[in-house]
Simulated scan of single mutants.
Amino acid sequence: MVRASRLVAAMKMLLPALAITLVALVLIWPQISRNTADIPVDQAPVTLEDVDTLRMANPRFVGQDENDQPFEIVARAATQIGDTGQAVELDHPQADMVNKDGTWVSLNAEEGVWFKDASVVNLTGGVALFHDAGHQLVTEEAMIDMGPGNVFSEVPTQGQSPGGTIRGEGMQSLDRGARIIFTGKARAVLYSTGASE
């Protein structure tokens, strides 16, 4: 009899404790499974270098030049250089500028660095400039001064338009493409529009 009463007393304490444990497990389990499901298995580990670097995918920067004309800079990725955030490394950047008359100029390259405080973008690696009048310039390096909308290159540049082709040792695209000057030794081939068939 004594053994049976001890067993009953133990069960009176054990069963409520077991019931409370099961209820707590039912309430907590969804939170545990949700948190583990949110952890991507194939995510690369974060290194100390990544902590000091701010990187953004598919960024889009918009602004206005000194004449209140809009410009836009987009890229596949942007990485902050240094602690100040004033220099941004751009992967496959594209810069678009719109003129008051509705014409536009677009530049793209493989790489670039945007100095935000100076409003300057340095482009490298297969730089191409397009003007909606049909002009196209190709060079390896160029610098865009976003303030006045000027583009400069001090390396060989090739250009083509409906009127012909031109090659120079450098170029200047001024006033958002309104004037294009080839610098150094230049050679132009002009297409004749008045030739009879």
Rank of each mutant, 00 (worst) to 15 (best):
M1C: 13
R6W: 15
R6S: 15
V8E: 13
V8P: 04
A10N: 03
M11V: 06
T21M: 14
V23I: 14
V23Q: 09
V23E: 06
L25V: 13
I28C: 06
W29N: 12
P30N: 12
S33L: 13
A37H: 06
D38T: 01
I39N: 05
P40K: 09
P40C: 02
V41Q: 15
Q43W: 07
A44E: 13
P45Q: 12
P45I: 07
V46C: 02
L48T: 07
L48H: 03
E49Q: 12
V51N: 05
T53S: 09
T53A: 10
T53V: 08
L54C: 07
R55L: 00
M56Y: 04
A57D: 10
N58R: 00
N58A: 01
P59E: 02
G63E: 12
Q64C: 02
D65F: 11
D65Q: 12
D65Y: 10
D68T: 13
Q69D: 13
P70G: 11
F71E: 07
R76G: 04
R76V: 00
A78D: 00
T79N: 04
I81A: 07
G82S: 08
A87P: 05
V88D: 04
A95P: 04
A95W: 03
A95R: 01
D96L: 14
W104I: 06
V105G: 09
V105H: 06
S106L: 08
L107I: 07
L107S: 08
N108P: 04
V113I: 14
V113L: 08
D117L: 04
D117A: 11
A118Q: 12
V120L: 02
V120E: 06
V120C: 01
N122A: 09
L123W: 02
L123Y: 02
T124H: 06
G125K: 04
G125T: 11
L129Y: 08
L129S: 04
L129N: 00
A133G: 12
H135A: 11
Q136V: 06
V138G: 00
V138Y: 05
V138T: 11
T139N: 03
E141C: 01
A142V: 01
M143C: 06
M143I: 13
D145A: 09
D145L: 02
M146K: 01
M146C: 04
G147M: 08
G147F: 01
G147S: 11
P148R: 10
P148D: 10
G149V: 03
N150M: 01
N150V: 00
V151W: 07
E154V: 10
E154D: 15
V155G: 05
P156A: 09
G159I: 10
G163V: 06
G163P: 02
T165W: 07
I166Y: 06
R167D: 15
G170S: 09
G170L: 12
Q172F: 05
S173P: 01
S173L: 02
D175L: 12
D175N: 10
G177I: 00
I180D: 06
I181C: 00
F182W: 00
F182C: 06
T183H: 04
G184W: 02
A186C: 09
A188T: 12
A188V: 14
V189N: 14
T193V: 15
T193Y: 14
T193W: 14
E197I: 10
